[in-house]
Design a protein around this nucleic acid. Structure first.
Lengths: 210, 210
DNA sequence: ACAATTATTGACAGTTTGTCAGTTATTGAC
DNA sequence: GTCAATAACTGACAAACTGTCAATAATTGT
């Protein structure tokens, strides 16, 4: 009689209901302009119940951010397995990052916010999930770089420590895409952002090519 | 009888008092955890008076962000004028950016936040100042790139449209530095961030070199 | 001296937050 | 089926914060 198990499943379901509802509202109004009341209404629950499942609004936000990271991880994995050669894998991951930023732009923006978002007071399951996700992302990049060194498509001299290079690639690509997303600078708004990002990817690849 | 002028100066002074006080509190507690009351107390003014000078808390934040941009602009200008050759100017600006992120890290973090910060409902003097600042930044980068093409230190084929390349350089460098600043990823925390950033600069320069 | 203008503030109404005592629903034992 | 125990859920409260406005205080020119 797995009654405990069913309870557990229902609890999990409520949790996801809340996160799914919050995701919509956050994307509509932004984190700061969203109240717990709105989330509760969207999830058809009482506001007080939200506090049973989450410490506060920021904790809900982090749960949504984890979803965003996992969505990106899936795209990275697709791009990674679609190619054999290291250079092509790197380029593929770069393009996947850009596609992600266009096709799941809300998630991309959440990952941008994550950079300035406060960490939880005490690590929880969400933080743990984020960490695993990050490690997977890093792992794929490192693997691709090592592949490229082995298969001769990348220059080991230019890459040095693959982990460091992976950080550089991720950071710079995120920065470039980010700078084209909310164009407070009217000049940037006018440029073709796809071309710009592709050029950035090409520059990095050129700098690493054998 | 420049009594009006003195009034104007005093008004300007109050304005700056508020911004200076807010800057400290924001950096201590973060924007979200700062109340108008705290700012008012720090500036030794009544809370209501803040609303005479600023529409709301976000407007004060934007004023601080403008200061941050101007601080960075000054560093860019120093680096730019310190060199003659285009390549050296670009590299110098890159290093200045990193130095800025270390020596004025609070300002750097504010500029990171600026990416996800809401724009004012209606453009004001602060927004105008930011725009000018951005144009100056872009202008210096473009100038340096054009210098490099003229003096043969940079490869025009690899640069293409200097403005596009300027955006790429700024975006990617900001992204790389940002990714090393709040290391939610414990691995990143362990790496030598100066080395990492310098390597990123070298990669970009290598990709543009003649 | 005083009317007019400008600067400043106290205090109010409206939101939102986090909590907790209390209510309702579900379960397993008998 | 009944009922005590446990779990799920909620109404309602105190505290904090926001933005505004009428009222007060200070400064100016006449």
């Amino acid at each position: 009689m797995p009654v405990t198990a069913r309870r557990e499943r229902e609890k999990q379901q409520r949790y996801e209901d809340i996160v799914d509802a919050a995701e919509i509202i956050f994307n509509e109004n932004g984190f700061a302009n969203t109240s717990m009341d709105e989330i509760a209404r969207a999830a058809q629950l009482s506001r007080a119940l939200l506090y049973v499942y989450f410490k506060d609004k920021a904790a809900i936000m982090r749960a949504v951010m984890l979803k965003a990271m996992q969505a990106m991880e899936a795209r990275f994995a697709n791009a990674f397995t679609a190619e054999e050669a290291g250079m092509k894998q790197i380029k593929g991951i770069g393009c996947a990052y850009y596609a992600f930023s266009v096709e799941e732009s809300d998630y991309f923006d959440m990952l941008t916010e994550l950079n300035t978002f406060p960490d939880p007071e005490e690590p929880d399951l969400v933080a743990e999930g984020m960490l695993r996700c990050r490690q997977n992302l890093d792992g794929m990049m490192v693997q691709a770089l090592e592949n490229g060194i082995k298969d001769g498509s990348l220059n080991p001299e230019h890459i040095g420590d693959p982990l460091i290079t992976a950080y550089i690639l991720q950071g710079s690509l995120h920065g470039v895409i980010m700078s084209t997303r909310k164009p407070k600078n009217p000049n940037v708004a006018q440029v073709d952002s796809e071309m710009l990002v592709k050029r950035a990817i090409d520059m990095m690849c050129y700098a690493m090519a054998a």
